[in-house]
Amino acid sequence: MVKEIERAGLPVVHICTITPISMTVGANRIVPAVGIPYPLGNPKLPAADEKALRAQIVENALAALQTEVSGQTVFE
């Protein structure tokens, strides 16, 4: 899906935990996530901290969308 959306001309950022899969599939802007069942969360954290963590990943994703890349890039 990532690749077809990009092929259609839309910049797309892929947030995922297993970044090697994203590399294999062919995403260009990749943002690592927290865990497989909760890419944008962490149930071990208090609610407020978990939300802050999510905000940080989303910020990273938005930064990736504003960054020119020449090939596949993982935004650590």
């Binding site: 899906m1 990532v2 959306i5 839309l10 910049p11 797309v12 950022v13 892929h14 947030i15 995922c16 935990t17 899969i21 994203s22 996530a33 497989i36 069942p37 890419p39 944008l40 989303v58 994703a61 969308l65």
Partner: peptide, 10 residues
């Protein structure tokens, strides 16, 4: 009219 996409995977 969407400009960019955030795609999440588990």
């Amino acid at each position: 009219g969407v400009d960019a996409v955030v795609l999440t995977s588990t």
